[in-house]
Amino acid sequence: MHKSINFIVGLFVVFAFICLGMVALRASTVEPMFQNQGYRLYARFDDISGLNVHAPIRIAGVKIGVVESIELLPKSYQAKVTMVIDTRFKNLPIDTSVSVATEGLLGSKYLEVTPGFDDGFIKSGGEITQTVSSISLEKLIGKLATSFVMEK
């Protein structure tokens, strides 16, 4: 009798972890621990509105890393974004650029990296100098509206 209840309880525990496994496999991204297997780069932006810590970094739409931290530089009032990138993509040319992009029309923000053609590579801890800031839909609409008003 003890044996059968032990078995059922064991089954219950396994079952619960299978549920967790399904969530991990099908409904979420198990972030690799980039802190160990990644290297850091940073970039300065004029405007990163909508970008969050942990946002993905992509090349050609494929995830290569995550945003580790975002801070405001006290003198230039620029946003400094620290990125952790998978060591497999160690050799990014010096003229690589990075831009804040949006998933779909209204989706969340991520960083799109466009590799350059230079022969030199950015060192670990270095900076991606070419950046394109957020294009905010609100500002765009604002500009359009004012231009309409001006024309009248």
Partner: peptide
């Protein structure tokens, strides 16, 4: 779901 949810920080 898979792209938007992070296992270690959401689940």
């Amino acid at each position: 779901l898979k792209n938007g949810i992070l296992f270690y920080s959401d689940v």
